[in-house]
């Protein structure tokens, strides 16, 4: 399943059915397993998946403000993907960076000790790299 996500960014209905068929388990159980793990997506995602840590340490260190900044900047809500399919905003369980909270991931890259200013710079970098950044 991780392999499919690596190649296709998410587990489509088709791939879940094929996995079920291949290893002879019920499709429902493939879905159940996929939804258990934060990093196995079952819906189409943008090119860059932002995963903001939702656990308590990050929350105490200002995660909410960071999240507002992201939502305000990308004009999307939690769980959504930008219309240009560039960014998807998700929550995740503890990333293990509590000592440098709040933390988030953009695909495989981790960013810590976030502030609203810092997160704006980071996301701008992702936008710049690929052009198409229009506010």
């Amino acid at each position: 399943m991780q392999g499919v996500v690596e190649r296709e960014s998410f587990l489509s209905e088709h791939s879940m059915v094929e996995i079920a068929r291949e290893i002879e388990i019920p499709a429902a159980d493939v879905y159940g397993t996929a939804t258990f793990y934060s990093f196995l997506e079952t819906k189409p995602t943008g090119k860059f998946i932002i995963r903001v840590c939702k656990t308590i340490t990050c929350a105490m260190k200002g995660k909410t403000q960071v999240l507002f900044a992201i939502q305000d900047m990308l004009k999307i809500k939690m769980g959504d993907t930008t219309p240009d399919k560039r960014f998807t905003l998700l929550e995740t369980n503890c990333l293990g960076w509590c000592h440098k909270a709040p933390a988030m991931l953009v695909n495989d890259d981790v960013y810590t000790e976030l502030t609203p200013e810092k997160v704006r710079d980071i996301l701008t970098k992702y936008m710049d790299k690929n052009g198409n950044f229009h506010n």
Partner: peptide, 20 residues
């Protein structure tokens, strides 16, 4: 039959079907 399964986790855990 396995029409029903456990999906998601923690306080979001629920009993559902393939792709809900």
């Amino acid at each position: 039959v396995n029409a029903l399964t456990v999906a998601h986790k923690g306080d979001e855990m629920k009993i559902t079907t393939f792709l809900e």
